[in-house]
Amino acid sequence: MEKFITLTHTAVPLEIENIDTDQIIPARFLKATDKAGFGENLFRDWRFDKEGNLKEDFPLNQKKYHGQILVAGDNFGCGSSREHAAWAIKAYGFKVVVSSYFADIFKGNSLNNGLLPVQVSPEFLTELFKAIEENPSTEIKVDLENQVIKLIDKNLEERFDIDAYKKMCMLKGFDDIDFLVSKLDQIKAFEEQQTV
């Protein structure tokens, strides 16, 4: 897994609540058997109409918005467990997703793919949307080591939470499989004492 330490970049705003994983990557694109190519179908039906024409007003299609940080409305990533959603966001070029709330499974999937979910307060989220709206080139700094997200121009910052183990994994680029395989002896011992 790719390491994540800090990132300073511009952001794309998606001021919509309850964005579900069916919007992030519609089910008809889940027929692939590898992880490649999901980026081009990210938010497919919001980015393109049925004839495949670009919907100009959708933020990802507006030239003024660009960057490696996706800032989204409350309860991001709800619905289906499809990890394809995290793969699509990552493949499109985002490294961080910011929201005031993340659905559990999506959050786990993101962390397992080196995509950092940063949960901020609703007030800070509003500040982020406002700042990007005022100046789409405004830079945001995400510092995982210190668990701080900062709006550089406005000198506004907030601390965010992350599980200590997951933080270590992100900083070092480790993943859970390596860790679990290193625990197989304990797992076997557990199986032996399992009575029911």
Binding site: S81, R82, E83, H84, A86, I105, G108, N109, N112, N113, D163, Y165, D175, D176, I177, F179, L180, V181, K183, L184, I187, E191
Partner: peptide, 19 residues
């Protein structure tokens, strides 16, 4: 429900890492 990375974890260890 789990994501695909966790499906791989279960294949590898019959366990998942979960809070």
């Amino acid at each position: 429900g789990i994501g695909t990375s966790q499906v791989a974890q279960v294949f590898a260890s019959q366990s998942v890492l979960v809070e």
